[in-house]
Protein backbone atom coordinates (compact mmCIF):
# COMPACT_ATOMS: atom_id res chain seq x y z
CA UNK A 1 0.00 0.00 0.00
CA UNK A 2 1.11 3.56 -0.64
CA UNK A 3 1.72 5.99 2.16
CA UNK A 4 -1.60 6.67 3.89
CA UNK A 5 -3.15 10.03 3.08
CA UNK A 6 -5.60 9.57 5.96
CA UNK A 7 -4.89 7.55 9.04
CA UNK A 8 -7.23 7.39 11.99
CA UNK A 9 -6.71 5.74 15.31
CA UNK A 10 -9.57 4.94 17.66
CA UNK A 11 -11.66 7.71 16.10
CA UNK A 12 -15.01 8.31 17.81
CA UNK A 13 -17.85 10.70 17.11
CA UNK A 14 -20.53 11.10 19.77
CA UNK A 15 -23.55 13.34 19.61
CA UNK A 16 -25.05 14.30 22.98
CA UNK A 17 -28.85 14.30 23.16
CA UNK A 18 -30.97 16.39 25.45
CA UNK A 19 -31.82 14.28 28.44
CA UNK A 20 -32.87 14.57 32.07
CA UNK A 21 -31.60 17.60 34.00
CA UNK A 22 -29.67 15.42 36.41
CA UNK A 23 -27.93 12.16 35.82
CA UNK A 24 -26.35 10.87 32.66
CA UNK A 25 -27.40 12.40 29.39
CA UNK A 26 -27.91 9.95 26.52
CA UNK A 27 -25.23 9.98 23.84
CA UNK A 28 -25.49 8.73 20.28
CA UNK A 29 -22.28 6.84 19.62
CA UNK A 30 -22.32 7.30 15.88
CA UNK A 31 -18.71 6.26 15.34
CA UNK A 32 -16.78 4.34 17.98
CA UNK A 33 -13.08 3.55 17.93
CA UNK A 34 -12.50 3.32 14.19
CA UNK A 35 -8.91 2.91 13.01
CA UNK A 36 -8.24 2.90 9.28
CA UNK A 37 -5.44 3.82 6.91
CA UNK A 38 -6.45 5.09 3.51
CA UNK A 39 -3.56 4.71 1.08
CA UNK A 40 -2.73 7.59 -1.23
CA UNK A 41 -4.33 7.11 -4.62
CA UNK A 42 -6.70 4.40 -3.47
CA UNK A 43 -10.41 4.03 -3.99
CA UNK A 44 -11.48 3.11 -0.47
CA UNK A 45 -14.99 1.74 -0.02
CA UNK A 46 -17.02 2.06 3.15
CA UNK A 47 -20.18 -0.04 3.40
CA UNK A 48 -22.89 -0.72 5.95
CA UNK A 49 -26.63 -0.35 6.51
CA UNK A 50 -28.17 3.01 7.24
CA UNK A 51 -27.38 3.89 10.83
CA UNK A 52 -23.98 2.23 10.74
CA UNK A 53 -22.13 5.54 10.99
CA UNK A 54 -20.48 5.56 7.58
CA UNK A 55 -21.64 9.06 6.63
CA UNK A 56 -20.66 10.47 10.03
CA UNK A 57 -17.22 8.92 9.69
CA UNK A 58 -16.76 10.50 6.26
CA UNK A 59 -17.86 13.87 7.59
CA UNK A 60 -15.56 13.63 10.60
CA UNK A 61 -12.64 13.22 8.20
CA UNK A 62 -13.68 16.47 6.52
CA UNK A 63 -14.15 18.15 9.90
CA UNK A 64 -17.85 18.50 9.16
CA UNK A 65 -18.71 16.39 12.21
CA UNK A 66 -17.06 16.83 15.63
CA UNK A 67 -14.34 14.37 16.60
CA UNK A 68 -14.93 13.29 20.20
CA UNK A 69 -11.93 11.09 20.75
CA UNK A 70 -9.01 9.53 18.94
CA UNK A 71 -6.69 10.79 16.25
CA UNK A 72 -7.00 11.45 12.55
CA UNK A 73 -4.07 12.58 10.46
CA UNK A 74 -4.13 13.94 6.95
CA UNK A 75 -0.81 13.76 5.13
CA UNK A 76 -0.60 14.35 1.40
CA UNK A 77 3.16 14.70 1.28
CA UNK A 78 3.03 18.50 1.11
CA UNK A 79 1.27 19.21 4.35
CA UNK A 80 0.32 17.22 7.41
CA UNK A 81 -2.68 18.13 9.53
CA UNK A 82 -3.82 16.68 12.80
CA UNK A 83 -7.55 16.87 12.17
CA UNK A 84 -8.95 16.94 15.74
CA UNK A 85 -6.78 19.94 16.64
CA UNK A 86 -6.56 21.60 13.24
CA UNK A 87 -6.22 25.39 13.41
CA UNK A 88 -8.52 27.78 11.66
CA UNK A 89 -6.11 28.91 8.93
CA UNK A 90 -5.08 25.29 8.39
CA UNK A 91 -8.73 24.30 8.05
CA UNK A 92 -9.15 26.87 5.27
CA UNK A 93 -6.31 25.22 3.42
CA UNK A 94 -7.64 21.73 4.24
CA UNK A 95 -10.97 22.58 2.59
CA UNK A 96 -9.14 23.01 -0.73
CA UNK A 97 -7.49 19.65 -0.30
CA UNK A 98 -10.48 17.61 0.83
CA UNK A 99 -13.90 17.77 -0.80
CA UNK A 100 -17.29 16.10 -0.64
CA UNK A 101 -19.64 14.82 -3.36
CA UNK A 102 -23.21 14.49 -2.16
CA UNK A 103 -25.82 11.81 -2.68
CA UNK A 104 -28.73 13.65 -4.17
CA UNK A 105 -27.83 15.71 -7.23
CA UNK A 106 -31.29 17.26 -7.17
CA UNK A 107 -30.77 18.79 -3.72
CA UNK A 108 -27.08 19.61 -3.99
CA UNK A 109 -27.24 22.30 -6.67
CA UNK A 110 -28.74 25.73 -6.17
CA UNK A 111 -31.59 26.23 -8.64
CA UNK A 112 -30.80 29.96 -8.86
CA UNK A 113 -27.22 29.64 -10.04
CA UNK A 114 -26.00 28.80 -13.51
CA UNK A 115 -23.82 25.75 -13.94
CA UNK A 116 -20.82 28.02 -14.46
CA UNK A 117 -21.46 29.86 -11.20
CA UNK A 118 -21.98 26.60 -9.31
CA UNK A 119 -18.66 25.22 -10.45
CA UNK A 120 -16.88 28.59 -10.00
CA UNK A 121 -18.15 29.18 -6.47
CA UNK A 122 -15.43 27.22 -4.62
CA UNK A 123 -12.75 29.11 -6.59
CA UNK A 124 -14.26 32.45 -5.67
CA UNK A 125 -14.92 31.59 -2.03
CA UNK A 126 -11.45 30.20 -1.52
CA UNK A 127 -9.83 32.97 -3.55
CA UNK A 128 -7.99 30.55 -5.77
CA UNK A 129 -8.13 32.62 -8.92
CA UNK A 130 -7.18 36.23 -9.51
CA UNK A 131 -9.40 37.24 -12.38
CA UNK A 132 -12.68 36.31 -13.94
CA UNK A 133 -10.86 35.08 -17.02
CA UNK A 134 -8.78 32.73 -14.92
CA UNK A 135 -11.90 31.44 -13.16
CA UNK A 136 -13.61 30.81 -16.48
CA UNK A 137 -10.55 29.03 -17.73
CA UNK A 138 -10.51 26.70 -14.71
CA UNK A 139 -14.27 26.07 -14.93
CA UNK A 140 -14.04 25.15 -18.60
CA UNK A 141 -11.08 22.90 -18.00
CA UNK A 142 -12.79 20.92 -15.23
CA UNK A 143 -16.14 20.85 -17.06
CA UNK A 144 -14.46 19.27 -20.06
CA UNK A 145 -12.85 16.69 -17.80
CA UNK A 146 -16.26 15.81 -16.32
CA UNK A 147 -17.76 15.60 -19.81
CA UNK A 148 -20.08 18.55 -19.34
CA UNK A 149 -21.03 20.20 -22.60
CA UNK A 150 -19.43 23.67 -22.47
CA UNK A 151 -22.54 25.23 -23.99
CA UNK A 152 -24.46 24.03 -20.95
CA UNK A 153 -22.46 26.23 -18.57
CA UNK A 154 -24.89 29.10 -19.02
CA UNK A 155 -27.94 27.02 -18.16
CA UNK A 156 -29.59 26.39 -14.79
CA UNK A 157 -29.62 22.97 -13.08
CA UNK A 158 -33.33 22.32 -13.68
CA UNK A 159 -32.56 21.68 -17.34
CA UNK A 160 -30.47 18.61 -16.56
CA UNK A 161 -31.09 14.97 -15.84
CA UNK A 162 -29.82 13.20 -12.72
CA UNK A 163 -26.65 11.94 -14.35
CA UNK A 164 -25.77 15.34 -15.79
CA UNK A 165 -26.38 16.99 -12.42
CA UNK A 166 -24.14 14.50 -10.69
CA UNK A 167 -21.40 15.35 -13.21
CA UNK A 168 -21.86 19.03 -12.35
CA UNK A 169 -21.55 18.33 -8.65
CA UNK A 170 -18.44 16.24 -9.30
CA UNK A 171 -16.96 19.15 -11.28
CA UNK A 172 -17.66 21.49 -8.37
CA UNK A 173 -15.88 19.16 -5.95
CA UNK A 174 -12.87 18.87 -8.25
CA UNK A 175 -12.40 22.49 -9.25
CA UNK A 176 -10.23 23.37 -6.25
CA UNK A 177 -7.89 20.50 -7.23
CA UNK A 178 -8.34 18.47 -4.05
CA UNK A 179 -6.32 15.39 -3.15
CA UNK A 180 -8.92 13.62 -1.07
CA UNK A 181 -12.61 13.23 -1.88
CA UNK A 182 -15.41 11.77 0.18
CA UNK A 183 -18.14 10.49 -2.18
CA UNK A 184 -21.19 9.87 -0.03
CA UNK A 185 -23.63 7.54 -1.82
CA UNK A 186 -22.81 9.43 -5.00
CA UNK A 187 -24.53 7.03 -7.35
CA UNK A 188 -27.36 5.81 -5.11
CA UNK A 189 -29.91 8.22 -6.58
CA UNK A 190 -29.06 7.41 -10.20
CA UNK A 191 -30.54 4.90 -12.63
CA UNK A 192 -28.36 1.88 -13.41
CA UNK A 193 -27.70 2.94 -16.99
CA UNK A 194 -26.38 6.31 -15.75
CA UNK A 195 -24.78 4.92 -12.60
CA UNK A 196 -22.24 2.97 -14.65
CA UNK A 197 -21.35 6.15 -16.53
CA UNK A 198 -20.74 8.17 -13.34
CA UNK A 199 -18.71 5.34 -11.79
CA UNK A 200 -16.52 5.15 -14.88
CA UNK A 201 -16.09 8.92 -14.76
CA UNK A 202 -15.03 8.86 -11.10
CA UNK A 203 -12.56 6.09 -11.84
CA UNK A 204 -10.98 7.84 -14.80
CA UNK A 205 -10.71 11.13 -12.93
CA UNK A 206 -9.11 9.38 -10.00
CA UNK A 207 -6.46 7.87 -12.24
CA UNK A 208 -5.93 11.13 -14.18
CA UNK A 209 -5.56 13.38 -11.19
CA UNK A 210 -4.12 10.89 -8.71
CA UNK A 211 -6.96 11.40 -6.25
CA UNK A 212 -7.84 9.40 -3.18
CA UNK A 213 -11.50 8.53 -2.74
CA UNK A 214 -13.45 7.48 0.30
CA UNK A 215 -16.45 5.94 -1.42
CA UNK A 216 -19.40 5.51 0.93
CA UNK A 217 -22.13 3.19 -0.33
CA UNK A 218 -24.67 0.68 0.80
CA UNK A 219 -24.49 -1.15 -2.52
CA UNK A 220 -21.91 -3.92 -2.32
CA UNK A 221 -21.92 -4.72 -6.01
CA UNK A 222 -21.06 -1.11 -6.86
CA UNK A 223 -18.28 -1.13 -4.27
CA UNK A 224 -16.97 -4.44 -5.62
CA UNK A 225 -16.59 -2.93 -9.07
CA UNK A 226 -14.98 0.38 -8.17
CA UNK A 227 -13.03 0.14 -4.92
CA UNK A 228 -9.69 -1.48 -4.27
CA UNK A 229 -10.11 -1.69 -0.51
CA UNK A 230 -13.32 -2.10 1.49
CA UNK A 231 -14.22 -1.46 5.12
CA UNK A 232 -17.51 -2.73 6.58
CA UNK A 233 -19.13 -0.80 9.42
CA UNK A 234 -21.87 -1.86 11.81
CA UNK A 235 -23.33 0.35 14.52
CA UNK A 236 -20.37 2.72 14.49
CA UNK A 237 -17.73 -0.01 14.62
CA UNK A 238 -15.43 -1.31 11.96
CA UNK A 239 -16.19 -5.03 11.70
CA UNK A 240 -14.10 -6.06 8.73
CA UNK A 241 -11.66 -4.54 6.29
CA UNK A 242 -9.75 -6.09 3.39
CA UNK A 243 -8.69 -5.57 -0.21
CA UNK A 244 -11.85 -5.84 -2.33
CA UNK A 245 -11.15 -9.18 -3.97
CA UNK A 246 -10.08 -10.78 -0.73
CA UNK A 247 -13.20 -9.50 1.05
CA UNK A 248 -15.61 -10.72 -1.59
CA UNK A 249 -13.83 -14.05 -1.99
CA UNK A 250 -13.34 -14.75 1.72
CA UNK A 251 -15.70 -12.72 3.88
CA UNK A 252 -15.00 -13.59 7.52
CA UNK A 253 -17.43 -11.57 9.60
CA UNK A 254 -20.97 -13.00 9.82
CA UNK A 255 -22.31 -9.52 9.09
CA UNK A 256 -20.29 -9.20 5.89
CA UNK A 257 -21.47 -12.65 4.84
CA UNK A 258 -25.08 -11.71 5.52
CA UNK A 259 -24.76 -8.47 3.56
CA UNK A 260 -23.34 -10.34 0.60
CA UNK A 261 -26.03 -12.99 0.62
CA UNK A 262 -28.79 -10.36 0.85
CA UNK A 263 -28.00 -9.03 -2.61
CA UNK A 264 -30.77 -10.32 -4.87
CA UNK A 265 -29.30 -12.56 -7.55
CA UNK A 266 -29.99 -11.83 -11.21
CA UNK A 267 -30.63 -15.51 -11.79
CA UNK A 268 -34.30 -16.30 -11.11
CA UNK A 269 -33.40 -19.90 -10.26
CA UNK A 270 -30.81 -18.89 -7.69
CA UNK A 271 -33.01 -18.31 -4.68
CA UNK A 272 -30.47 -19.53 -2.16
CA UNK A 273 -30.26 -17.00 0.62
CA UNK A 274 -29.20 -19.07 3.60
CA UNK A 275 -27.76 -16.32 5.78
CA UNK A 276 -30.77 -14.07 6.03
CA UNK A 277 -30.59 -11.54 8.85
CA UNK A 278 -33.45 -11.26 11.27
CA UNK A 279 -34.42 -7.96 12.84
CA UNK A 280 -32.89 -4.55 12.40
CA UNK A 281 -29.85 -2.54 13.41
CA UNK A 282 -30.14 -1.53 17.12
CA UNK A 283 -30.29 2.08 18.23
CA UNK A 284 -26.88 3.74 18.66
CA UNK A 285 -28.07 5.44 21.87
CA UNK A 286 -28.52 2.09 23.52
CA UNK A 287 -26.15 -0.37 21.83
CA UNK A 288 -26.13 -3.97 23.05
CA UNK A 289 -23.24 -5.07 25.32
CA UNK A 290 -20.36 -7.08 23.92
CA UNK A 291 -20.20 -7.49 20.18
CA UNK A 292 -22.61 -5.00 18.60
CA UNK A 293 -23.78 -7.56 16.09
CA UNK A 294 -24.69 -10.25 18.64
CA UNK A 295 -28.41 -9.44 18.64
CA UNK A 296 -28.69 -10.49 14.97
CA UNK A 297 -25.85 -12.98 14.73
CA UNK A 298 -26.72 -16.64 14.45
CA UNK A 299 -23.31 -17.67 15.78
CA UNK A 300 -23.43 -15.55 18.95
CA UNK A 301 -22.19 -17.29 22.12
CA UNK A 302 -21.86 -16.07 25.72
CA UNK A 303 -18.48 -14.51 25.05
CA UNK A 304 -20.01 -12.35 22.28
CA UNK A 305 -22.61 -11.01 24.69
CA UNK A 306 -20.00 -10.00 27.27
CA UNK A 307 -16.89 -8.89 25.50
CA UNK A 308 -16.47 -6.67 22.48
CA UNK A 309 -14.17 -8.30 19.91
CA UNK A 310 -11.04 -6.46 18.75
CA UNK A 311 -9.86 -6.25 15.17
CA UNK A 312 -7.79 -9.36 14.45
CA UNK A 313 -5.18 -9.36 11.71
CA UNK A 314 -5.52 -12.21 9.26
CA UNK A 315 -2.63 -11.08 7.10
CA UNK A 316 -2.86 -9.65 3.57
CA UNK A 317 -4.37 -6.47 5.00
CA UNK A 318 -7.47 -8.39 6.04
CA UNK A 319 -8.77 -7.48 9.52
CA UNK A 320 -11.90 -8.77 11.20
CA UNK A 321 -13.56 -8.08 14.55
CA UNK A 322 -15.24 -11.35 15.53
CA UNK A 323 -14.57 -13.72 18.40
CA UNK A 324 -15.35 -16.77 16.36
CA UNK A 325 -13.97 -16.09 12.88
CA UNK A 326 -11.35 -18.84 13.21
CA UNK A 327 -13.88 -21.53 14.12
CA UNK A 328 -16.31 -20.32 11.49
CA UNK A 329 -13.67 -20.30 8.77
CA UNK A 330 -12.79 -23.92 9.51
Amino acid sequence: MNEPIISTHDLSVHFPLTGPLFGEKPVVRAVEGVSVEIGKGSFYGLVGESGSGKTTFGRALLRAAPITRGSAIYNDGEVKYDLPTIKKHELTDYRKRAQLIFQDPYAALSPRMTVRDIIAEPLEVMGLTKSREETDERVREIAAKCRINLEHLRRFPHAFSGGQRQRISIARALVSKPNFIVADESVAALDVSIQADVLNLLKSIQQDMGLTFLFISHDLSVVAHTCDHVAVMYLGRLVETAPTRELFANPRHPYTKALLSAIPSLDPDDQGNPLKLEGEIPSPTNPPPGCKFQTRCRYAIDLCRKEEPKLDKLGDDHDVACHRWKELAA
Partner: peptide
Protein backbone atom coordinates in the same frame (compact mmCIF):
# COMPACT_ATOMS: atom_id res chain seq x y z
CA UNK B 1 -25.34 -3.60 -13.82
CA UNK B 2 -22.36 -4.26 -11.56
CA UNK B 3 -22.20 -8.00 -10.90
CA UNK B 4 -20.54 -9.81 -8.08
CA UNK B 5 -19.72 -12.93 -10.06
CA UNK B 6 -17.47 -11.11 -12.51
CA UNK B 7 -15.53 -8.24 -10.99
CA UNK B 8 -13.24 -7.79 -14.01
CA UNK B 9 -16.03 -7.02 -16.41
CA UNK B 10 -15.98 -3.28 -17.15
CA UNK B 11 -19.22 -1.44 -16.45
CA UNK B 12 -20.84 -0.49 -19.72
CA UNK B 13 -23.22 2.43 -19.38
Amino acid sequence: LPRLDDLDRPLKP
